[in-house]
Design a protein around this nucleic acid. Structure first.
Lengths: 161, 161
DNA sequence: ATATTATGGATATCAAAGGTCTTTATTAAC
DNA sequence: GTTAATAAAGACCTTTGATATCCATAATAT
């Protein structure tokens, strides 16, 4: 269970965009040189980010990418969900097994006839909690907060001058 | 980014073991029938759990598996780390890129010569935080707590009698 | 001894990640 | 208008990991 390299590339690209001057598009050449990834592969990732409204892109001479909204409104969760997809972190693969009938048994009379055997898996419930915890944290982390951290370290170092 | 089916199988198997009588081994036949997975595949997963000290196994007639320690001392994190491995959730793939030299630059004089360019990635730092949050939650969830939940629901339903 | 059960190795299959190349569409500058 | 630069999209390839099966071996109770 690991985040993909694509997520890595996407996050670093966005940080670079957030760090460069406003109203100044950054081309795929610059980005790919910056990250050490091929232009063709990185451009696929940027296209995904564009389709999801994270960045804007203009083709043509002097074209390139820029953030589609302020850096403090682009969360890590946004980026991760674009790149990794939006499936649940965990899905029980055998909801109809005997174990679930036993563990989830509350007496047939109590069963809601509208939701026959959905969401009965207690393991899934726990893991869904894990997902919510993780997502809450990732929602609080933004492109801007990373830039702020970097800046803090710079000025901290510059105090000596 | 999703947990594997193997993790699913492992967790459900452990819950079944925790739910069955003490001093009574459960064979791979019973487990695989319970979960609807092949014996050969599930046995590989159980072997992993055994090598990591989560379950005990005895071969031979009437052999099988049992929990190696009390169910409240087997956390979800334990199981996940055995099955999914212990790599970090996120590893920066380009720590030596220009971006990191820029963002992590605190002035050459401030650099710790012992740790030249390790752990300089701010994205990795954020994601490490995410990992710690997730792990903290998963450490609090045990095989026993799932069984308790199931039991609570049963007695709750049985109140009507 | 024999039947039963777990273990480990070899192998097969399939999907997804990671990556390249080519063609097309769009834009600025000349 | 032509051209050079740039993003977009699709076809394709390779590698890797998850999932799974099968067989031979070891251990154990009866």
């Amino acid at each position: 269970m690991q985040f993909s390299k694509s997520t890595d590339y996407a996050l670093h690209s966005l940080i670079h965009l957030g760090n460069s001057e406003r109203c100044n598009n950054v081309g795929i050449k610059e980005l790919s040189a910056e990250l050490g990834v091929s232009e063709s592969y990185l451009s696929k990732i940027m296209s995904k980010l564009r389709r999801d409204g994270i960045v804007r892109a203009v083709p043509g001479v002097n074209g390139g990418y820029e953030l589609a909204r302020p850096a403090d409104q682009i969360t890590f969760l946004d980026v991760i969900q674009v790149i990794e997809g939006r499936q649940k972190l965990f899905e029980c693969s055998n909801s109809s097994s005997r174990q679930h009938r036993l563990l989830a048994e509350e007496g047939p009379a109590l069963r809601d006839p509208k939701r026959p055997e959905k969401n009965d898996c207690l393991v899934e419930k726990v893991m869904y909690g894990a997902e919510q915890h993780l997502y809450q944290y990732l929602r609080e982390q933004t492109v801007q907060s990373v830039l702020d951290n970097a800046f803090k370290r710079c000025t901290h170092g510059a105090n000596k001058n």
